[in-house]
Design a protein around this nucleic acid. Structure first.
Lengths: 149, 149
DNA sequence: CCCGCGGTGGGGAAAAGTGGGGAGAGAGAG
DNA sequence: CTCTCTCTCCCCACTTTTCCCCACCGCGGG
Protein backbone atom coordinates (compact mmCIF):
# COMPACT_ATOMS: atom_id res chain seq x y z
CA UNK A 1 0.00 0.00 0.00
CA UNK A 2 1.23 3.47 -0.92
CA UNK A 3 2.70 5.55 1.90
CA UNK A 4 2.11 9.27 1.90
CA UNK A 5 5.17 11.35 2.78
CA UNK A 6 6.53 14.86 2.29
CA UNK A 7 5.39 18.36 3.16
CA UNK A 8 3.64 20.81 0.86
CA UNK A 9 2.63 24.45 1.25
CA UNK A 10 -0.68 25.43 -0.28
CA UNK A 11 -3.39 27.96 0.22
CA UNK A 12 -7.09 27.50 0.71
CA UNK A 13 -8.73 29.75 -1.88
CA UNK A 14 -11.91 31.82 -1.38
CA UNK A 15 -13.94 28.93 -2.74
CA UNK A 16 -12.53 26.54 -0.12
CA UNK A 17 -10.56 24.61 -2.68
CA UNK A 18 -7.31 22.95 -1.63
CA UNK A 19 -4.61 21.52 -3.87
CA UNK A 20 -3.58 17.92 -3.37
CA UNK A 21 0.10 17.11 -4.02
CA UNK A 22 0.59 15.48 -7.44
CA UNK A 23 2.37 12.57 -5.77
CA UNK A 24 -0.68 11.78 -3.72
CA UNK A 25 -2.90 11.97 -6.79
CA UNK A 26 -0.52 9.59 -8.49
CA UNK A 27 -1.13 7.13 -5.66
CA UNK A 28 -4.84 7.73 -5.98
CA UNK A 29 -4.74 6.93 -9.69
CA UNK A 30 -3.47 3.45 -8.87
CA UNK A 31 -6.40 2.69 -6.62
CA UNK A 32 -9.94 1.55 -7.23
CA UNK A 33 -11.79 4.77 -6.45
CA UNK A 34 -11.15 8.25 -7.75
CA UNK A 35 -11.71 10.01 -4.45
CA UNK A 36 -9.90 10.65 -1.21
CA UNK A 37 -11.64 10.48 2.14
CA UNK A 38 -11.32 13.59 4.28
CA UNK A 39 -12.29 13.82 7.93
CA UNK A 40 -11.50 15.57 11.19
CA UNK A 41 -8.30 14.56 12.94
CA UNK A 42 -6.81 14.74 16.38
CA UNK A 43 -5.13 17.93 17.64
CA UNK A 44 -7.15 20.05 15.25
CA UNK A 45 -6.02 18.87 11.85
CA UNK A 46 -7.74 17.01 9.03
CA UNK A 47 -7.00 13.47 7.91
CA UNK A 48 -6.84 12.62 4.22
CA UNK A 49 -7.03 8.95 3.28
CA UNK A 50 -6.55 7.00 0.09
CA UNK A 51 -9.47 4.65 -0.59
CA UNK A 52 -7.43 1.59 0.41
CA UNK A 53 -6.35 3.29 3.62
CA UNK A 54 -9.92 4.26 4.38
CA UNK A 55 -11.09 0.71 3.81
CA UNK A 56 -8.37 -0.60 6.08
CA UNK A 57 -9.33 1.86 8.77
CA UNK A 58 -12.92 0.71 8.65
CA UNK A 59 -11.92 -2.95 8.62
CA UNK A 60 -9.40 -2.75 11.45
CA UNK A 61 -10.96 -0.21 13.71
CA UNK A 62 -14.56 -1.10 13.22
CA UNK A 63 -13.85 -3.72 15.84
CA UNK A 64 -12.90 -0.98 18.23
CA UNK A 65 -16.06 0.87 17.35
CA UNK A 66 -17.86 -1.95 19.03
CA UNK A 67 -18.30 -1.07 22.69
CA UNK A 68 -20.15 -2.65 25.60
CA UNK A 69 -21.89 0.67 26.13
CA UNK A 70 -24.01 1.00 23.00
CA UNK A 71 -24.93 4.56 23.76
CA UNK A 72 -21.25 5.50 23.67
CA UNK A 73 -20.77 3.47 20.55
CA UNK A 74 -23.50 5.44 18.80
CA UNK A 75 -21.98 8.72 19.97
CA UNK A 76 -18.60 7.78 18.57
CA UNK A 77 -19.91 6.48 15.30
CA UNK A 78 -22.04 9.58 14.80
CA UNK A 79 -19.00 11.82 14.95
CA UNK A 80 -16.81 9.52 12.93
CA UNK A 81 -19.17 9.04 10.00
CA UNK A 82 -20.79 12.46 9.94
CA UNK A 83 -17.52 14.33 9.73
CA UNK A 84 -16.08 12.20 6.94
CA UNK A 85 -16.54 13.11 3.28
CA UNK A 86 -15.54 11.61 -0.02
CA UNK A 87 -13.66 14.24 -2.03
CA UNK A 88 -12.74 13.91 -5.69
CA UNK A 89 -10.02 16.20 -7.05
CA UNK A 90 -11.13 18.48 -9.91
CA UNK A 91 -9.28 18.79 -13.22
CA UNK A 92 -6.71 20.99 -11.45
CA UNK A 93 -6.20 18.50 -8.67
CA UNK A 94 -8.04 20.43 -5.97
CA UNK A 95 -10.53 19.13 -3.45
CA UNK A 96 -13.35 21.07 -1.83
CA UNK A 97 -13.16 21.39 1.97
CA UNK A 98 -16.59 21.44 3.68
CA UNK A 99 -17.26 24.38 5.97
CA UNK A 100 -17.42 22.29 9.13
CA UNK A 101 -14.02 20.73 8.45
CA UNK A 102 -12.53 24.11 7.61
CA UNK A 103 -13.69 25.27 11.02
CA UNK A 104 -12.49 22.15 12.80
CA UNK A 105 -8.97 22.70 11.51
CA UNK A 106 -9.08 26.50 11.75
CA UNK A 107 -7.95 26.87 8.15
CA UNK A 108 -7.32 30.55 7.39
CA UNK A 109 -5.44 30.69 4.11
CA UNK A 110 -1.97 29.18 4.40
CA UNK A 111 -2.30 25.45 4.68
CA UNK A 112 0.11 22.58 5.11
CA UNK A 113 -0.50 19.22 3.50
CA UNK A 114 1.86 16.61 4.83
CA UNK A 115 2.26 12.89 4.67
CA UNK A 116 1.79 10.84 7.80
CA UNK A 117 2.40 7.38 6.43
CA UNK A 118 -0.94 5.65 6.37
CA UNK A 119 -2.66 8.97 5.69
CA UNK A 120 -1.99 12.62 4.94
CA UNK A 121 -2.80 15.53 7.21
CA UNK A 122 -4.03 19.04 6.52
CA UNK A 123 -2.97 21.76 8.94
CA UNK A 124 -3.46 25.48 9.21
CA UNK A 125 0.12 26.75 8.94
CA UNK A 126 0.09 28.80 12.11
CA UNK A 127 -1.60 26.03 14.06
CA UNK A 128 1.05 23.59 12.93
CA UNK A 129 3.85 25.95 13.97
CA UNK A 130 2.34 26.26 17.42
CA UNK A 131 1.74 22.55 17.70
CA UNK A 132 5.25 21.73 16.61
CA UNK A 133 6.78 24.09 19.14
CA UNK A 134 4.59 22.98 22.02
CA UNK A 135 4.24 19.28 21.33
CA UNK A 136 6.50 17.87 18.68
CA UNK A 137 9.79 19.37 19.82
CA UNK A 138 9.43 18.43 23.53
CA UNK A 139 8.14 14.98 22.69
CA UNK A 140 10.95 14.42 20.23
CA UNK A 141 13.50 15.21 22.88
CA UNK A 142 11.87 13.11 25.54
CA UNK A 143 11.07 9.93 23.69
CA UNK A 144 14.60 9.61 22.38
CA UNK A 145 15.43 7.48 25.37
CA UNK A 146 12.86 4.85 24.59
CA UNK A 147 12.91 4.85 20.81
CA UNK A 148 15.31 2.59 19.02
CA UNK A 149 15.66 4.67 15.91
CA UNK B 1 -23.29 -1.66 0.56
CA UNK B 2 -23.15 2.10 0.39
CA UNK B 3 -21.89 3.91 3.48
CA UNK B 4 -23.65 7.12 4.30
CA UNK B 5 -21.22 9.80 5.45
CA UNK B 6 -20.95 13.59 5.54
CA UNK B 7 -22.90 16.39 7.19
CA UNK B 8 -25.48 18.64 5.56
CA UNK B 9 -27.37 21.69 6.85
CA UNK B 10 -30.97 22.00 5.75
CA UNK B 11 -34.19 23.51 6.95
CA UNK B 12 -37.57 21.96 7.50
CA UNK B 13 -40.04 24.11 5.59
CA UNK B 14 -43.56 25.06 6.72
CA UNK B 15 -44.93 22.05 4.86
CA UNK B 16 -42.63 19.67 6.76
CA UNK B 17 -40.55 18.94 3.73
CA UNK B 18 -36.87 18.08 4.18
CA UNK B 19 -34.14 17.96 1.56
CA UNK B 20 -32.14 14.75 1.21
CA UNK B 21 -28.46 15.17 0.25
CA UNK B 22 -27.88 14.48 -3.46
CA UNK B 23 -25.19 11.94 -2.56
CA UNK B 24 -27.69 9.90 -0.60
CA UNK B 25 -30.19 10.06 -3.43
CA UNK B 26 -27.42 8.85 -5.71
CA UNK B 27 -27.02 5.83 -3.46
CA UNK B 28 -30.76 5.36 -3.51
CA UNK B 29 -30.80 5.41 -7.30
CA UNK B 30 -28.49 2.38 -7.32
CA UNK B 31 -30.87 0.33 -5.22
CA UNK B 32 -34.00 -1.60 -5.98
CA UNK B 33 -36.57 0.70 -4.41
CA UNK B 34 -37.10 4.39 -4.90
CA UNK B 35 -37.83 5.22 -1.29
CA UNK B 36 -35.98 5.69 1.96
CA UNK B 37 -37.30 4.38 5.26
CA UNK B 38 -37.66 6.97 8.00
CA UNK B 39 -38.36 6.24 11.64
CA UNK B 40 -37.68 7.43 15.17
CA UNK B 41 -34.13 7.00 16.43
CA UNK B 42 -32.29 6.89 19.73
CA UNK B 43 -31.27 10.05 21.60
CA UNK B 44 -34.05 12.02 19.93
CA UNK B 45 -33.10 11.89 16.29
CA UNK B 46 -34.60 10.24 13.21
CA UNK B 47 -33.11 7.31 11.33
CA UNK B 48 -33.09 7.31 7.56
CA UNK B 49 -32.34 4.02 5.83
CA UNK B 50 -31.61 2.97 2.28
CA UNK B 51 -33.79 0.05 1.16
CA UNK B 52 -30.88 -2.39 1.41
CA UNK B 53 -30.02 -1.15 4.88
CA UNK B 54 -33.62 -1.47 5.95
CA UNK B 55 -33.75 -5.02 4.61
CA UNK B 56 -30.63 -5.90 6.50
CA UNK B 57 -32.10 -4.45 9.66
CA UNK B 58 -35.12 -6.68 9.31
CA UNK B 59 -32.95 -9.68 8.54
CA UNK B 60 -30.83 -9.07 11.62
CA UNK B 61 -33.94 -8.58 13.68
CA UNK B 62 -32.98 -11.08 16.37
CA UNK B 63 -29.56 -9.61 16.98
CA UNK B 64 -30.47 -5.98 16.47
CA UNK B 65 -33.41 -5.73 18.82
CA UNK B 66 -32.52 -8.37 21.35
CA UNK B 67 -33.08 -7.41 24.99
CA UNK B 68 -33.01 -9.56 28.13
CA UNK B 69 -36.45 -8.26 28.98
CA UNK B 70 -38.70 -9.45 26.19
CA UNK B 71 -41.54 -7.20 27.20
CA UNK B 72 -39.22 -4.21 26.78
CA UNK B 73 -38.09 -5.62 23.48
CA UNK B 74 -41.67 -5.81 22.23
CA UNK B 75 -42.33 -2.28 23.42
CA UNK B 76 -39.36 -0.91 21.56
CA UNK B 77 -40.12 -2.78 18.38
CA UNK B 78 -43.72 -1.58 18.44
CA UNK B 79 -42.59 2.01 18.50
CA UNK B 80 -39.78 1.51 16.01
CA UNK B 81 -41.88 -0.20 13.38
CA UNK B 82 -45.18 1.58 13.85
CA UNK B 83 -43.46 4.92 13.46
CA UNK B 84 -41.55 3.87 10.37
CA UNK B 85 -42.61 5.30 7.02
CA UNK B 86 -41.52 4.76 3.47
CA UNK B 87 -40.62 8.17 2.04
CA UNK B 88 -39.99 8.88 -1.62
CA UNK B 89 -38.18 12.11 -2.52
CA UNK B 90 -40.22 14.50 -4.70
CA UNK B 91 -38.94 16.08 -7.91
CA UNK B 92 -36.86 18.51 -5.80
CA UNK B 93 -35.35 15.72 -3.73
CA UNK B 94 -37.36 16.40 -0.56
CA UNK B 95 -39.12 13.95 1.70
CA UNK B 96 -42.16 14.64 3.84
CA UNK B 97 -41.66 14.29 7.59
CA UNK B 98 -44.80 13.11 9.44
CA UNK B 99 -45.93 15.25 12.34
CA UNK B 100 -45.21 12.61 14.98
CA UNK B 101 -41.64 12.16 13.79
CA UNK B 102 -41.13 15.90 13.68
CA UNK B 103 -42.15 15.98 17.32
CA UNK B 104 -40.03 12.99 18.27
CA UNK B 105 -36.93 14.75 16.98
CA UNK B 106 -37.96 18.22 18.12
CA UNK B 107 -37.37 19.63 14.65
CA UNK B 108 -37.75 23.41 14.72
CA UNK B 109 -36.39 24.75 11.46
CA UNK B 110 -32.64 24.23 11.21
CA UNK B 111 -31.98 20.58 10.65
CA UNK B 112 -28.88 18.45 10.27
CA UNK B 113 -28.83 15.44 7.98
CA UNK B 114 -25.72 13.37 8.56
CA UNK B 115 -24.30 10.01 7.71
CA UNK B 116 -23.94 7.37 10.40
CA UNK B 117 -22.54 4.56 8.27
CA UNK B 118 -25.31 2.01 8.01
CA UNK B 119 -27.92 4.76 8.05
CA UNK B 120 -28.34 8.52 8.00
CA UNK B 121 -29.71 10.57 10.86
CA UNK B 122 -31.86 13.69 11.06
CA UNK B 123 -31.23 16.06 13.97
CA UNK B 124 -32.59 19.35 15.13
CA UNK B 125 -29.49 21.58 14.97
CA UNK B 126 -29.65 22.79 18.55
CA UNK B 127 -30.35 19.32 19.87
CA UNK B 128 -27.30 17.99 18.04
CA UNK B 129 -25.11 20.74 19.46
CA UNK B 130 -26.19 19.82 22.98
CA UNK B 131 -25.79 16.11 22.33
CA UNK B 132 -22.35 16.59 20.86
CA UNK B 133 -21.18 18.56 23.86
CA UNK B 134 -22.62 16.17 26.43
CA UNK B 135 -22.10 12.82 24.75
CA UNK B 136 -19.93 12.85 21.66
CA UNK B 137 -16.98 14.81 22.99
CA UNK B 138 -16.57 12.60 26.11
CA UNK B 139 -16.97 9.40 24.13
CA UNK B 140 -14.46 10.51 21.53
CA UNK B 141 -11.96 11.52 24.14
CA UNK B 142 -12.23 8.17 25.87
CA UNK B 143 -12.04 6.03 22.77
CA UNK B 144 -9.54 8.31 21.05
CA UNK B 145 -6.80 7.25 23.47
CA UNK B 146 -6.94 3.69 22.30
CA UNK B 147 -7.37 4.45 18.62
CA UNK B 148 -4.34 4.99 16.51
CA UNK B 149 -6.03 7.61 14.45
C1' DC C 1 13.79 30.75 -25.34
C1' DC C 2 10.24 27.66 -25.52
C1' DC C 3 7.60 24.24 -23.38
C1' DG C 4 5.31 21.75 -19.82
C1' DC C 5 3.76 21.37 -15.28
C1' DG C 6 2.01 22.99 -11.04
C1' DG C 7 -0.45 26.43 -8.19
C1' DT C 8 -4.02 29.92 -8.24
C1' DG C 9 -8.00 32.71 -9.77
C1' DG C 10 -12.42 33.48 -11.83
C1' DG C 11 -16.66 33.30 -15.13
C1' DG C 12 -20.64 31.00 -16.40
C1' DA C 13 -23.57 27.01 -16.80
C1' DA C 14 -25.77 23.78 -14.01
C1' DA C 15 -27.51 22.03 -9.86
C1' DA C 16 -29.14 22.53 -5.27
C1' DG C 17 -32.04 24.64 -1.65
C1' DT C 18 -36.21 26.90 -0.67
C1' DG C 19 -40.90 28.75 -1.18
C1' DG C 20 -45.55 28.68 -2.64
C1' DG C 21 -49.95 27.88 -5.57
C1' DG C 22 -53.56 24.75 -6.37
C1' DA C 23 -55.97 20.30 -7.15
C1' DG C 24 -57.52 16.22 -4.85
C1' DA C 25 -58.40 13.02 -0.89
C1' DG C 26 -59.89 12.28 3.65
C1' DA C 27 -61.61 13.48 8.32
C1' DG C 28 -64.66 15.74 11.21
C1' DA C 29 -68.40 18.98 12.36
C1' DG C 30 -72.74 20.86 11.52
C1' DC D 1 -75.05 15.08 2.88
C1' DT D 2 -72.35 19.10 2.62
C1' DC D 3 -69.09 22.20 4.02
C1' DT D 4 -64.65 23.10 5.82
C1' DC D 5 -60.17 22.20 7.18
C1' DT D 6 -56.00 19.58 6.86
C1' DC D 7 -52.74 17.08 4.71
C1' DT D 8 -50.58 15.34 0.22
C1' DC D 9 -48.87 15.61 -3.94
C1' DC D 10 -47.63 17.74 -8.22
C1' DC D 11 -46.42 21.72 -10.32
C1' DC D 12 -43.67 26.07 -11.13
C1' DA D 13 -40.35 29.64 -9.72
C1' DC D 14 -36.70 32.12 -7.56
C1' DT D 15 -32.07 32.57 -5.34
C1' DT D 16 -27.83 30.79 -4.02
C1' DT D 17 -24.24 27.63 -4.31
C1' DT D 18 -21.55 24.42 -6.63
C1' DC D 19 -18.82 22.73 -10.14
C1' DC D 20 -16.82 22.56 -14.72
C1' DC D 21 -13.90 24.80 -17.63
C1' DC D 22 -10.60 28.21 -19.25
C1' DA D 23 -6.77 31.17 -18.26
C1' DC D 24 -2.90 33.23 -16.12
C1' DC D 25 1.60 33.25 -13.90
C1' DG D 26 5.96 31.40 -12.30
C1' DC D 27 9.37 28.09 -12.37
C1' DG D 28 12.46 24.47 -14.09
C1' DG D 29 14.25 21.66 -17.84
C1' DG D 30 15.42 20.89 -22.44
Amino acid sequence: MALLIGRYDYSLDPKNRLAVPPKYRESLAQEKGRSFFLTSGMEGCLYLFLPSQWEKLLADDLKMFSLPDKEQERAFKRKFFSEAVEVEPDAQGRILVPQYLKEHAGLRGDVLVQGAGTRAEVWDSRRWTDYERKMVAPAYKKIGKSLEI
